Computed example of a mutant assay.
Amino acid sequence: MKLIQFSYKATLAAALIILVGCSASPTGRKQFIALPDSQLDTMGVESFAVMKKEIPASNNAQLRQQVQCVADAIIAILPDKYRDQSWEVVLFDDEQVNAFALPGYKVGVYKGLLSVAKNQSQLAAVVGHELAHVIARHGNERVSTQMATSQALALGYQFSGEESAEKKAIFQALGIGIQVGIILPFSRTHESEADLLGLEYMAKAGFDPRESVQLWRNMSAGDNNNTPELLSTHPSHATRIEDLQANMSPHLAVYDALVTQNKQPQCY
């Protein structure tokens, strides 16, 4: 009984550590940030250097120019702290349907994405989403969250009595509970937040925000992943589309104003 009580307290302590935000994202959401951003920047730069050695860059100059143009247009409307950085954008010669942005101002787009993002606005939806992860410090938040929960579980295990089958079973269950109840929801929160920030960025840059919805319809058409949303790090395609549509109106107004002023990028 004492073991169960202590385990519950350890789990509760881990949850409280995460819920007490010491920072705020661009949307005002409270965040737990335990590491200096400079450390994440160093990790991002090192990871990107490794990727460039392992995956060749595309030699298609036209595609590289299109991707760079979309990224440059979005970077140009970011807050000064991020707009003034030396972002590096690489189009990788790989058929993965994916893209990413890393702390340290690194952006990678896989060539396979361009078969699904069929116009400049759909590509802008992806690039805006990935830049949002960096600007919202999601990488730092995830590392900090996982570090805090791992330490809480380790301490709980260390101080919860002698080794036993019951103890191992309880802590295995706690580990699963933390993954499903804390870490995965945080990942889905990050993805949803990046979707909405990306929607804002693409509209301010002059890309049609309605194409973000079409992008996820394209993604859904080619996705055979049947993992339940509860057990996934990402929201379902249907959830993403619904959230984007619910938040479309103000960003569409921004875009329409830029269209009237003929301030749309011409990347494709």
Rank of each mutant, 00 (worst) to 15 (best):
M1W: 12
M1K: 14
K2V: 09
I4E: 13
F6I: 14
F6Y: 13
S7Y: 09
Y8S: 12
Y8H: 15
Y8C: 12
L12P: 10
A13P: 11
A13R: 11
A14C: 13
L16N: 15
I18Y: 03
G21I: 12
C22G: 15
A24I: 00
A24M: 10
A24P: 09
S25T: 13
P26Q: 13
P26F: 13
R29E: 13
F32N: 07
A34L: 13
A34C: 13
L35S: 06
F48S: 03
A49N: 14
K52E: 02
K53M: 00
I55T: 11
P56C: 12
N59I: 12
N60S: 12
N60M: 07
Q62G: 12
Q62H: 14
Q62T: 13
Q62R: 15
L63N: 08
R64S: 09
V67L: 02
V67E: 05
V70K: 04
A73N: 10
I74A: 09
K81M: 14
R83K: 14
D84Y: 09
S86I: 07
W87R: 00
E88N: 05
V89M: 07
D94C: 08
Q96H: 03
V97N: 09
F100C: 03
L102A: 09
P103H: 10
Y105K: 07
Y105N: 02
K106R: 01
V107I: 14
V107L: 01
Y110M: 03
K111R: 06
K111Q: 09
G112S: 07
L113N: 00
V116N: 04
Q120T: 10
A124D: 01
V126F: 01
E130R: 02
V134E: 02
H138E: 08
H138M: 06
G139R: 01
E141N: 04
S144Q: 10
S144K: 01
Q146R: 08
Q146G: 13
M147P: 07
M147A: 08
T149G: 09
T149K: 01
S150I: 03
S150Q: 05
Q151D: 00
Q151S: 08
A154E: 11
L155Y: 06
G156K: 05
F159C: 11
E166D: 09
A169F: 03
I176V: 15
L184I: 00
L184S: 10
F186P: 06
F186A: 06
R188N: 06
L197A: 00
L199E: 04
L199F: 04
Y201W: 07
A203H: 02
A203L: 08
F207R: 07
D208W: 01
P209G: 05
P209D: 02
E211K: 10
S212L: 08
Q214Y: 06
M219V: 00
D223K: 00
D223F: 02
N226L: 15
N226V: 11
T227V: 14
P228I: 14
E229D: 12
L230D: 15
S232Y: 13
S236N: 03
R240P: 10
I241S: 04
E242M: 10
L244T: 02
L244P: 10
L244G: 04
L244W: 04
S249T: 14
S249G: 11
P250G: 13
P250V: 12
A253W: 08
V254G: 11
D256S: 15
V259S: 11
V259Q: 12
T260L: 07
K263M: 15
K263F: 11
P265G: 11
